[in-house]
């Protein structure tokens, strides 16, 4: 599912993967930090640790897209 037919073109999905993976690292990192140091004013349903599993999901999705749509495979 590359975005253009030019052999050298980088797929938009690769860019999406890079950003999602980066966001996954930052958000999971925040989640781990708050696991060790719970915030003074937690959000509603904080005990579900949404930042941990949502961050991990973003990271895994990002890595999949980075691998699957890496520039060497494009075209």
């Amino acid at each position: 599912m590359t975005s253009t037919s030019k052999p050298e073109a980088v797929s938009i999905w690769f860019f999406v993967g890079v950003l999602l993976a980066f966001y996954g690292v930052v958000i999971t990192g925040e989640g781990l930090y708050h696991l060790a140091y719970p915030p003074e004013r937690p959000v509603v349903l904080a005990w579900l640790h949404a930042d941990l599993w949502w961050g991990a999901l973003l990271l895994l999705s990002g890595l999949f897209y980075c691998y699957h749509f890496a520039p060497r495979k494009a075209g």
Binding site: V26, E30, P39, V43, V44, A50, D51
Partner: peptide
């Protein structure tokens, strides 16, 4: 703001 702490809020 109800459900999202730092990081998720930025997203």
């Amino acid at each position: 703001a109800r459900y999202c702490g730092p990081g998720l809020l930025g997203l």
